[in-house]
Design a protein around this nucleic acid. Structure first.
Length: 499
RNA sequence: GACCCGUUAGUCAAGUGGUUAAGACACCAGCCUUUCACGCUGGUAUCGUGGGUUCAAAUCCCGCACGGGUCACCA
């Protein structure tokens, strides 16, 4: 890169950070960090109807959680480029200045068509099997006609007038050479709404130019917006940035763009957070949505990704969202992180209380809760996909005495001699009752096996059942260590009584 | 309907003229283990389709089929 790289992530604060937003933010972030450039956060809040009060905050918190930070933004203004919210920029007249310039040049014009008329126009065109487009009816109208419309109380929008049969083309980092003809772009488009706000297609151009953005990485759904924006760059005599259109994320079931209505897929980053996915895993996973490094490795830390990121390797085909793969990847990270750290993170989820599991655990005093989380993680770190499962297990263990176990699988099974089972249960109980606090459960079980002559599954299955209610379980001495010793004894008694 | 784009195993996904067509997930089998899980080993594709170019094509060209994106006073 021969010039200082400046990229931006520019969400509209209409809700939570969506996985598609996150993907776009992430690639901009990787690009900025890889090329030692500047990452800008800009808030595109020109749609006053759809803005959500906490939208911006949520975006920022979730980016933060993912480990994506920025160098400039509403909270870190660089005076040279501020402000970073389009609503504030509009108040300063930044957009209107250029709108006026285009108006003066005769490239833009006022349009008094009402929304109803527009809709009617589109319907008619569709009915005639035509591509929906604005027909240019207000282009070149006289001032008298405009005044007449004004007199009727109509507020105009301002439209950009396309040159005829003009080719817009660019070399897209991800897509290669792309071109569109001005005649296929849906007709003259609105650059200022009747409420005085600029539209997206106009505001991005003004902002990207005035913020000296060098590279625009955004979702592939913006491809057909690009020629419109290029037309504005051209009309204003500006150079356009380099574009890179990131493949969209698809739902493998519907084979369409991930929709917020797809119930089978978690859509928002905060949902991943509350289910106990780790930000490292999500970051890693999203980086592979539409991109891949050279080689076969798939587990990469953030720093490693920054190092190996190569925008030329962006894919063209859509990226299919594979939930199972994400779960696997999250499990990989869970295995890598140490128990104390995982327990700390799980504890944070408990405190936030966003899930049933978390709410349950909130009823336990904090130090005890942390303790049982640590013990649970110690046992389940190897087999759990997300921290939510840890919370569920921990609650099961904490409330084990309230649960009803069905001992039939052993009691009624001819493979297990009742005398043997009882001998084992009683033998172990003796060890617990007589042993000190430092009793080694693993050792104790082995001794019981020796003393009773019961071994293998005949020894372990009854114990699994006594302590977990199931015949298969993780290492049973580890489960025993999760419970207080009195609980272990009660669980043994309970099963002994059942015989 | 118009304009852009994509199409490699059950699911993702490398691969840009000559490869035994990577790897991952899932699945199946084996090993390990009291069981479960983890881990390890092995297994499954002639690259949508029809033509063409070439000594040689998943890789280049054309047609077709299928899928998608976009055509808002949303971003």
């Amino acid at each position: 890169m021969d010039q200082k790289v400046r990229v931006r992530y520019a969400p509209s604060p209409t809700g939570f950070l969506h996985i598609g937003n996150a993907q776009s933010a992430l690639f901009n972030y990787l690009f900025a960090r890889h090329f030692n450039g500047t990452m800008v956060l800009r808030i595109e809040d020109t749609d006053t109807k759809r803005n959500v009060a906490s939208g911006e905050k949520s975006q920022r918190e979730n980016l933060d959680w993912l480990g994506i930070d920025w160098d400039e933004g509403p909270d870190k203004p660089n005076p040279k480029y501020a402000p970073y919210r389009q609503s504030e920029r509009n108040k300063k007249g930044i957009y209107h200045k250029y709108i006026q310039e285009l108006l003066d040049k005769g490239i833009a014009y006022k349009d008094y068509t009402t929304e109803e008329e527009l809709q009617e126009m589109r319907e008619r065109q569709r009915a005639n099997n035509e591509a929906p487009h604005y027909d240019g009816r207000w282009y070149g109208k006289s001032e008298e006609e405009q005044k007449a419309a004004e007199a009727k109380g109509l507020k105009p929008t301002i439209r950009f007038h396309f040159p005829k049969n003009h080719e817009y083309e660019w070399d897209d980092i991800a897509r290669g050479h792309v071109s569109f003809n001005s005649d296929n772009l849906g007709g003259d488009f609105i650059i200022e709404k009747s409420d005085g706000m600029p539209t997206y297609n106009f505001a991005v151009v003004v902002d990207d130019h005035s913020m000296e953005i060098t590279h625009v990485l955004r979702g592939a759904d913006h491809i057909s917006n690009t020629p419109k924006q290029m037309a504005i760059y051209e009309a204003l005599g500006w150079e356009h940035p380099v574009f890179c259109h990131i493949p969209l994320i698809f739902n493998p079931k519907t084979r369409k763009k991930l929709s917020k209505r797809d119930k089978d897929t978690l859509q928002f980053i905060n949902e991943y957070k509350k289910h106990g996915y780790l930000p490292e895993a999500i970051f890693n996973f999203i980086a592979f949505l539409g991109w891949s490094p050279v080689g076969e490795r798939e587990i990469y830390s953030k720093d490693e990704l920054i190092k190996v990121y190569d925008p030329k390797r962006m894919s063209k085909a859509p990226a299919y969202f594979d939930q199972k793969k994400l779960d696997w990847m999250n499990a990989q990270y869970i295995k890598k992180i140490d128990v104390d750290e995982l327990a700390k993170r799980t504890m944070e989820l408990v405190k936030e209380g966003e899930t049933e599991e978390a709410k349950h655990l909130q009823s336990i005093p904090e130090d005890q809760c942390l303790d049982i989380l640590k013990k649970t993680i110690h046992v389940h770190q190897r087999d759990v996909d997300k921290l939510l499962e840890v919370m569920a297990y921990a609650w099961d263990y904490y409330t084990v005495l309230d649960q009803h176990f069905n001992y039939d699988p052993i009691v009624a099974n001819d493979d297990f001699a009742n005398d043997d089972v009882l001998a084992v249960l009683k033998g172990l109980k003796d060890k617990l009752v007589n042993g000190g606090d430092d009793l080694d459960y693993s050792q104790a079980i082995k001794e019981v096996g020796k003393e009773t002559g019961v071994k293998g599954r005949n020894l372990y299955f009854p114990l699994n059942l006594a302590f977990t209610g199931a015949t298969s379980a993780p290492q049973i001495y580890e489960i025993m260590a999760i419970y207080p010793k009195e609980t272990d004894i009660k669980l043994l008694d309970r099963m002994i009584d059942a015989f």
